[in-house]
């Protein structure tokens, strides 16, 4: 008996993902780190998961084409979108960021080699597409809607992530938490909306900071040089912590203890910022994901996970609370997540 179309397409998609090589990596990251990120990003995109998720559209009116306006930053971000929509049988156009087009171009080529209608371009022509999934600010979403009024638009605004933890007193639990937080900070060099901009700590911050400094020092993760343009901000944040808190600086990382009013909604590569658990400060963040260990905060995020999982979203999932399948169903008007 012939397998369902979703299953056949899912197999082709997974073959394409498996054949992605170094040409798909973000050249701004250390190659070893980038390979690790790619492996982790495609791991949940299995044949079964893709086919099952795609099958949710059965019996519903599905659009035939979608453009995904891909953000510069986390280079593996388009994988799940392209994989799901190709499995659903849509024609997919990846609008690649001009400064970081490698992954989209390699992904489209790999998909096409498997007979899947996925294309990539840095061009700005999004005409003829029935759906658009875009990452950008609210004003950009409005402008996209005006530019391409025929397309069903789902736009995702700027988001950040954070962790909210109770510092364990038991040494092995402390070390385990530090290791998990280290992973959250090291993956993708702190790029993307799932990188923690702060770790809010209930209890003894000093011991956790020292444990995290140790974990970051010892983590066998390859890491590249700091983007020179970030150097001044890096030194500024480090200086602020020296004046108003504490700072631990390693060759390729830093751990800062700062008061809650020093919260900056921007992650710097491999720089962990530990703040006292302050619900009011947390509430100021436009959260994408929140890693929680111990008592949860009053403020929730669209996605909650354990420390160590911030940059490893499962599949399927709701992206910032939005159902990815519904973005390509014929229906409601534009929305901004």
């Amino acid at each position: 008996m012939k397998p369902p179309a979703e299953l056949r397409r899912a197999r082709a998609v997974v073959r394409a993902l498996q054949r992605l090589g170094d040409e798909a990596l973000d050249p701004s990251l250390d190659p070893g780190l980038a390979r690790r990120c790619l492996d982790l990003a495609r791991a949940p995109l299995t044949v079964e998961a893709l086919a099952l998720e795609a099958s949710r559209a059965r019996g519903r009116e599905l659009l035939s084409s979608v453009g995904v306006v891909v953000a510069q930053g986390v280079f593996t971000a388009p994988l799940e979108w392209a994989a799901l929509y190709a499995t659903m049988g849509l024609r997919v156009l990846l609008k690649a960021p001009r400064q970081q087009a490698e992954t989209c171009l390699a992904l489209a080529e790999a998909m096409q080699a498997q007979g899947l209608p996925v294309q990539a371009s840095t061009g700005r022509d999004l005409s003829g597409l029935e759906a658009l999934v875009a990452f950008g600010g609210e004003q950009t979403a409005v402008e996209l809607a005006q530019a391409w009024p025929q397309a069903r638009l789902t736009a995702f605004g700027h988001r950040v992530s954070a962790a909210w933890v109770t510092a364990p007193t038991e040494p092995s639990a402390l070390a385990a938490l530090a290791l998990a937080l280290a992973q959250d900070h090291l993956l993708y060099d702190g790029q993307g909306c799932m990188a923690p901009v702060a770790v809010f700590v209930e209890g003894e911050r000093l011991a956790l900071a020292e444990a995290l400094h140790l974990a970051l020092s010892q983590a066998p993760w390859p890491r590249g040089p700091l983007d020179p343009a970030l150097g001044p901000l890096w030194r500024e944040r480090l200086g602020l912590a020296r004046a108003r808190g504490r700072a631990w600086s390693g060759a390729q990382h830093a751990v800062l203890l700062l008061p809650a009013d020093a919260l900056l909604p921007r992650a710097l590569p491999r720089m962990a910022v530990l703040l006292p658990a302050d619900p009011a400060a947390l509430a100021t963040l436009p959260l994408s994901s929140l890693a929680v260990q111990g008592a949860p905060p009053p403020h929730q995020a669209p996605r909650t996970c354990l420390p160590g999982q911030l940059q490893l979203p499962p599949f399927p999932r709701r992206h910032d609370g939005v159902d990815m399948v519904e973005c390509v169903l014929a229906a409601p008007p534009a929305r901004i997540a």
Partner: peptide, 21 residues
């Protein structure tokens, strides 16, 4: 001036799609 480092986070790439259309 030192050019600003790119904003990180689910970012502002859509602006590019509109740029100089």
């Amino acid at each position: 001036r030192l050019s600003g480092a790119p904003l990180r986070g689910c970012s502002l790439a859509a602006a590019e799609a509109l740029d100089r259309r």
